[in-house]
Amino acid sequence: MLKKETYINGFSSINPIKDSGNEEDVFRCVEPDYKTYIDTIAVRRLGKIQRMALVGAKMCLENAGVNLPDAIITGTGLGCLSDTEKFLGNMLDDESGLHSPTSFIQSTHNTISGQIAIMLKCYGYNNTYSHRGLSFERALEDASLLLLENTENVMIGAVDEIPDSTLKITQKVKTFYSKSHRNEPVAGEGVHYFLLSNAKQPNSILLKEFSSIEGKVSYEEILLECKRILLSAGIETREVDALILGTNPNIDELHYQQLQNELFLNSNVLQFKNLTGESFTASGFGVVLACKFLLGQTLDERMYLKKKHSKAQTVLIYNQFKGISHSFFLLQNV
């Protein structure tokens, strides 16, 4: 969908990665030191996901050197579930009772972008996408359209939380790993923000191409889409220095295996869901990882599936969720 260039001029990530092994059956975010970034008294009634998103947005803007973005867009598969669960519980306990409105107010998906706008006093474009495994991708597509329409700085986020009740339900229906269903991905959380711009800066990362496919597709179609993107960017497969895969360690996802074996034998290959878990917006962390790789930052060794060389000019990400939402991102140093 890109014509004008889309640059990533800053990013932030609040994620579940810890220094030592993760034995749990869910990956929950390591919460940041809120008070460094936000007035914790002012936001004391907000839920964890909203507080993390406020910090994530602040960190991202700081990283980009931007005070006020022109637009804020969040992608979230399931929205503000903790507040939803809380209000739902209160309502079901006493349907005809009068409850505190706080958790209802904070239950809507757009609370995240809305609270960031309030914090920043940002009166510009404000949107929220909730489209299952492509929620972050849809936010990104909107952002690239805004850049095309000459909006200068657009902040986008990939935000999902997995509170206890939701975890229990999703495990029961085999969306995520549980003791009785081991062949499913482990549920995870993440809050990742990016400042996109059509103006290049010294540390900009170019989002050269991206695309998404919705629905169950064959490996051949994935392969074709991968080749199409590279062709459209004028990049040979051997020029891809790192291939970042959204592979889940405990399950057999053939598309990932085949793709790396067929096209990218000489590329570094990285994974991340072994440390972050799976979510509707997990691809957001894939983009964070790509940015870190391109900026030459040290990466957690546990993410390397294959380490080939240290060149870091071009990165391709392929992510899929449950075989029905597929996306590619091609990023480069400029």
Binding site: T108, H109, N110, S113, N126, N127, T128, S130, R132, E141
Partner: peptide, 17 residues
């Protein structure tokens, strides 16, 4: 296809997109 969730302005934002 895509889904927008901005509470009471959701459909207007869908039309705009």
């Amino acid at each position: 296809s895509t889904t927008i969730s901005t509470a009471c302005s959701s459909a207007a934002n869908a039309i705009m997109l």
